[in-house]
Nucleic acid binder design. Structure first.
Ligand SMILES: [Mg+2]
Length: 231
DNA sequence: GCGACAG
DNA sequence: ATCTTGTCGC
């Protein structure tokens, strides 16, 4: 039996109504900020989700969890979250030091139905989330100046709505697409991503999650560091 | 109809 | 990066 996209579309529309686009009343300056990324193995057959928890503002790795499960959905633009959510939800379950804010690799409400992966995770796990995407999925914007931290609004021209920001997070790099996921304003989403930048294109939580999910040199370095700390 | 299209 | 699938702008 195949995937019913019409059904998933309707689910997104229903869920999107419940997204909160203002700052959570209980949301103050976070002590812990999380980051997520997902990778694939066995030619796409295995989904590998990684969640990292960093201290803020020191950006020390506090905890990370990795979950591998069989992949249940192909990648379909606009439906990414159904592919990645199950593994990410399990990884979240395993996290013991729950962060107050989660930076998710992908769009928040900058999505055709205002329900990207960051919104999906935020709503179903009931946490403030920010979508940090490397490329545009939806929305219009003017060219972003090359000067670091330059940014442009990301707009939905259908209803003249602000759905995110395009941020030049680092000189000579392509900009990032930042949008509210859940329980946070566009302004704060942009602000927190900027506050998590540390000399790289990606904000630290996302960069660390990328490293863990793909077993990159940075992750090996972090492992060695924590081994030293416990030795 | 054709190209774009989060990861 | 890919793609059967959908959806959008042109
Ligand atoms: Mg990724």
């Amino acid at each position: 039996m195949s995937i019913n996209l019409a059904q998933l579309k309707q689910l997104q529309l229903d869920y999107a109504h419940r997204i909160i686009l203002h700052d959570d009343v209980g949301f103050k300056t976070p002590t812990l900020i999380g980051g997520t990324d997902v990778g694939f193995e066995n030619n796409g057959g295995i989904t590998r989700a990684a969640i990292v928890v960093l201290s803020y503002p020191s950006f020390e790795l506090v905890e990370y969890q990795v979950v591998k499960i069989p992949t249940t959905m192909p990648y379909i633009p606009g439906y990414l979250s159904f592919r990645e959510f199950p593994a990410l939800a399990l990884a979240w379950q395993k996290i013991t030091c729950k962060p107050e804010l989660l930076l998710v690799d992908g769009q928040g409400v900058a999505h055709p139905r205002q329900f990207g992966i960051a919104s999906h995770l935020g709503l179903l796990l009931d946490i403030p989330t920010i979508g940090v995407a490397k490329r545009r999925l939806y929305g219009q914007y003017e060219p972003v100046a090359q000067v670091p931290l330059s940014c442009q609004p990301l707009l939905d021209n259908h209803n003249n709505t602000l759905i995110g920001h395009v941020l030049r997070s680092k000189a000579k790099c392509n900009p990032l697409f930042i949008s509210s996921g859940h329980r946070i304003s566009q302004r704060s989403a942009l602000n927190w991503v900027i506050l998590c930048l540390n000399g790289y294109r990606l904000p630290e939580p996302t960069r660390f999650a990328d490293a863990v999910a793909s077993n990159k040199p940075l992750f090996q370095k972090l492992l060695a560091k924590s081994a030293n700390a416990t030795a």
